[in-house]
Design a protein around this nucleic acid. Structure first.
Lengths: 151, 151
DNA sequence: ATCGTTGCAAAAGATTTGCAACTTC
DNA sequence: GAAGTTGCAAATCTTTTGCAACGAT
C-alpha cells in the first residue's frame, strides 16, 4: 500500500479545476474539501458518504453531510476517486491509488477492500467482441467475500 | 413477445417452494405473482420495479407496488430472475433465460443487454481466495460496449 | 379454518436541493 | 465584492414494513 507519496492527491483541486474548466464554475479550496479528501485518503478502504461523515466528526472536523456528498460527487466525476455500489445499494468511495486497471475485493461484513490483480480476461473479451460484434469493451469486476478478520 | 411456451415460467411457484422449503413458509400462487412474472417475461430486457408496476397498470393488472417489490425479491432470492444495479442505484430485474451462470454485456448507447458466457475466472478466484484469506467469493462482472446496431 | 398474501400508508435510508449566510480569490 | 461553498432542513426516490383485510389450500 502506497502511503508515502502525497503528491498523488495534494493537487486534487488542480485536477478538479482542470476537469471542470471546460464548461463549469471555478473550484475553490476549502477546509471542508481538504478534510474530506484527507479522511478518505487515511481510510484507504472503501467507505460510504455517511461513514466518512462520521469519520470527520470523530476527527473533530465539522463538515455538513451535504457537503460530504457534494464533494464526493465532484471528485467522482473528476475521476479522482473510485465509486462502487455495495450489494445493499450504498455507494462506496475510495481514494484512487493507482491509475492502472485494478479490481476490488470487498468484505461483505466489515467493508474493507483490497486491490486484487485482474484475472486474465482479455482472451475471453476478444472472443465475446468477435461473437457479438460489440466494440470497445470495458469491464467492471467487483468481487465480494468474507475477510479472515470478520469470519 | 408472448411465446406459446409457458412451461418456462409456469413452474416458478414450484421452484420458489423448493428453495424456501428448507426453512420457510409455503408459497401460494396468486394472480399478482403470475402477473409480475408474465410482465417481466414479456419485457425481456432489464426493468425496474417501478417500471414493472407501471407495465402492470398499463396491462390492466392492478397490483400493489409493495407486492411487486416483494415478489421480485423472492424471485431474486430464489434465483429465478436476475438483478443488477443500474449506475444510478436502481435495481433492475430481468427474467432469467438460462440457469447457468452468466454475465451481461450492456450496450453503452442503446442500453440493450445480452447474456454472455462467463470467462473462466475460477482459477483466478481460487488463487485470490488463497492469497487473501477471503471466503465465499462472489463476483459481479459487468461488461460494457457498443453494439453493432448503435455503432 | 389456517396461514400465506395483499395493499395501503407510513417508515426507513440514501442522496439531492433550495436558499440564506459565509468564505475564498 | 463577486462568485463559489456551506449547512440546514425539506424534498426526492427507491425500497421496506406494520397491520388489518383477503384469498388460497
Amino acid at each position: 500500500m502506497t502511503t508515502g507519496n502525497r503528491t498523488e492527491w495534494t493537487d486534487w483541486t488542480e485536477s478538479l479545476r482542470h476537469v471542470r474548466s471546460q464548461s463549469g464554475p471555478k473550484v475553490r479550496s476549502t477546509r471542508q474539501r481538504q478534510a474530506v479528501v484527507e479522511v478518505l485518503e487515511n481510510a484507504g478502504d472503501f467507505r460510504s458518504a455517511q461513514q466518512l461523515h462520521a469519520d470527520l466528526r470523530d476527527r473533530g472536523d465539522q463538515v455538513g453531510l451535504s457537503t460530504v456528498y457534494r464533494t464526493l460527487r465532484s471528485l467522482t466525476e473528476a475521476g479522482h476517486i473510485d465509486a462502487i455500489r455495495a450489494e445493499d445499494g450504498e455507494t462506496l468511495y475510495r481514494h484512487c491509488v493507482t491509475r492502472r486497471r485494478h479490481h476490488h475485493l470487498v468484505c461483505r461484513k466489515c467493508g474493507r477492500a483490497i486491490d486484487v490483480p485482474p484475472p486474465n480476461i482479455d482472451t475471453w473479451s476478444e472472443g465475446v467482441a468477435a461473437e457479438t460484434g460489440f466494440a470497445n469493451l470495458t469491464h467492471r469486476l467487483d468481487t465480494f467475500g468474507t475477510c479472515p478478520a470478520s469470519a
